[in-house]
Design a protein around this nucleic acid. Sequence first.
DNA 1: ACCTGAACACCGTTCAAGT
DNA 2: ACCTGAACACCGTTCAAGT
Lengths: 270, 270
Amino acid sequence: MDVGGTEDTIPMRRPDPEPPEGRGGARAVRSADPPLSGRTPLDRRRILGAAIEFVDRHGLAALTMRRLGSALGVEAMALYRYVPGREQLLDGVVETVIDELYGDPEVHMEAAHGWQDYLQRLAHGVRRIALAHPEVFPLVATRPPAAPWVRPPLRSLRWVESFLTVLTASGFTAESAVAAYRAYSSFLLGHLLLEVSQKGVQINAEDAPEGVSNTGTDLSQYPLVIELEELLSRDESDAEFEDALENLLGRLESVRREGRDGGRPGGFRA
Amino acid sequence: MDVGGTEDTIPMRRPDPEPPEGRGGARAVRSADPPLSGRTPLDRRRILGAAIEFVDRHGLAALTMRRLGSALGVEAMALYRYVPGREQLLDGVVETVIDELYGDPEVHMEAAHGWQDYLQRLAHGVRRIALAHPEVFPLVATRPPAAPWVRPPLRSLRWVESFLTVLTASGFTAESAVAAYRAYSSFLLGHLLLEVSQKGVQINAEDAPEGVSNTGTDLSQYPLVIELEELLSRDESDAEFEDALENLLGRLESVRREGRDGGRPGGFRA
DNA sequence: ACCTGAACACCGTTCAAGT
DNA sequence: ACCTGAACACCGTTCAAGT
């Protein structure tokens, strides 16, 4: 039903995303553009960058080989010279976004001040990325990992390698470093996924102009939800993140100590 | 590159999923099937059930209105009488899967043995569902919630209501019940998403028949990853889940106590 | 060397028409 | 009342052809 729906459907959030570089307006059709060809010849990096920007702007569902092509001023088929297909495009997007971490000066100086400091900065770095690309992050969380046998899919073996290096150098046994890796990534994944999807919803709730923000469900069945509405919708994500991260690091520290002493009486296992 | 690839692409994992009810072989074309019409007239529940089964079998990417239709012995267009569109179909799938919880006797007797017992059973119930429908679970974790202002998207207001009811009846303040709800769902989300995507990868790793399960990346750059391969690929998910859940519940108990006493010196905030 | 046109098989969705 | 055929606009992807 849903009569007179706004532009709420998924396939296309905006009709025409307008080619990103204005560079001379229409410049209609098929004539010259002399032998010095038409702009720089395209490459994988530029494609991935454009894809990320496109997803940030229009959402994942709107990303299409054809639309991405035209955002780059090119026909879709041209992309296939640089990217094997749509799925691999998405893999590349995930990898590129994760690799932003290594350009982040807050994160890059690995273990200068101990492993807890490193994990703190890493977590905040990942969080910054998640908040910067909320439409991309679910993809990061959801795609299968590069190496099938590395369990947690926060992808990018560089990341795993660096994590394990720092922890084993800080007194973690191999077992507890791996356990820590798992606990840490599942924490980040869960927390940030929640946070990002919250933000997404707040933003996408731009339709219902005022009053009953009710999405059609009958709320009267859920009195406590109504009563606690104010608390439930409050956004304390910064503080929540800080608290939960600190708690996790505390847990890891005790695992580390147990590992060092040889016994493993509680906490984690690998 | 990837020469001679097996049937590894996403769009169609199997060429023809064969109509699920054999019911009389070919029975070629357009003749009779007298006025007593062709089988039961389709309905929303049957459609959602078929969609879940289809996704479990063939993966999310393979679910298509047309293919789902033909799995039900019907043209795609017939589905639109019962479901407004593909997106809403997916919403329905998520809701149906989550609602399995309420048919689960392990979970349903709400707070018979205290809130910790309740949260234990609930977590295990959700985990059972995640493991039973690994292809559906990412959808559960990823779709926006029914009520925009309920932050964590483990959807289904019934679930939220029941959670809050039990906790506030067990001595949690409103604030700490909400904080507990958030911590609990982000834990479940992160942990199960990781676990499920691990399983999915293990299964989909059926292609590389033996030896180098390498996906093309150059592993030699990541010596520690190689060295710890055995540990990293080990599956202790049952024990890990148990440990992490127990730890979380311990944390919640201390929050509960603090809330009762009026002070809130550590742990969570709402 | 790099891009495009045309084509193919497949999508979601609408609507008038069949039974 | 319930389903289908035909149609529309849009996909991903291939490949021979253009420059």
